[in-house]
């Protein structure tokens, strides 16, 4: 069965086409029968999908706090059900902020410690390979990818941090901390590993035209996870 991946668009989302293009191109290379489609934030059910991406941007203008209003879009309720049933979910940048606001991932993303908007390529290390975004990678693997954010300073209390470490929920760490994130965290997952949030943009590192290819193995892992989901009995 062909896997269907939905890329959610809130008013103010601006990375959706990059994600669709990167995922479609990778699926084509692998000869995977996957369709990638945009999903409007008013959608009430995602049960027809095998994977969901919340792309970057400024959902609802980032008013109040990034992700704070997006959490009340009807698609977010549908997303919570999809995630609870084990569906693969990835939030990139603003999508990560939406996932924390929605309570689908622990912690919060604060203003960068240097109070600067950071837009550059950074070194990352893969810390967990049990997730829907890192299944095709190896532990400790180094990646280079762009970050592009003002509020990427991952924050949580000590108890949450202890739990994230104990349950293998830290997915990516920065090699050089660019924003003040606790424990150099660039990405985390839920306990089951099917919901992942990260600040770096893998979709912008899938073509040498944009300077790097290290995002491709991450998105390939997501395609694999969606493919597996599609072959599950309904």
């Amino acid at each position: 069965m062909s896997a269907r991946i939905g890329v959610v668009v809130f008013p103010g989302t601006n990375c959706e086409h990059d994600v669709v293009k990167a995922l479609s191109a990778l699926a084509g290379e692998e000869a995977l029968a996957a369709t990638v489609e945009l999903v409007w934030h008013g959608e009430r059910s995602l049960s027809q999908l095998d994977g969901v991406v919340l792309p970057g941007g400024f959902a609802h203008g980032d008013y109040l706090r990034p992700g704070a209003i997006a959490r009340f879009s009807s698609v977010t309720d549908a997303l919570a059900r999809f995630a609870a049933e084990g569906g693969p979910v990835v939030g990139i940048c603003n999508g990560f902020q939406v996932l924390t606001e929605a309570g689908l991932l622990p912690g919060a993303l604060q203003k960068n410690s240097g109070l600067r908007f950071v837009c550059k390529s950074v070194g990352l290390r893969v810390c967990s390979t049990r997730t829907v975004l890192t299944g095709a990678l190896s532990q400790g693997q180094r990646l280079r990818m762009p970050i592009n954010h003002f509020e990427g300073n991952y924050t949580c209390d000590q108890r949450t941090l202890d739990r994230l470490r104990a349950e293998d929920c830290v997915v990516l760490r920065y090699e050089e901390n660019p924003n003040g994130s606790v424990d150099d965290i660039a990405g985390v997952c839920n306990a089951a590993g099917n919901v992942v949030g990260l600040m770096p943009h893998p979709e912008r590192a899938c073509d040498m035209l944009t300077g790097a290819l290290d995002g491709a193995p991450l998105l390939r892992s997501l395609l694999d996870a969606a493919d597996q989901h599609a072959s599950l009995p309904a």
Binding site: Q110, S113, G114, L115, N153, T155
Partner: peptide
């Protein structure tokens, strides 16, 4: 205990 970069800058 939560860092406040805006407060620190001011």
């Amino acid at each position: 205990g939560i860092s406040d970069p805006q407060g620190a800058t001011i």
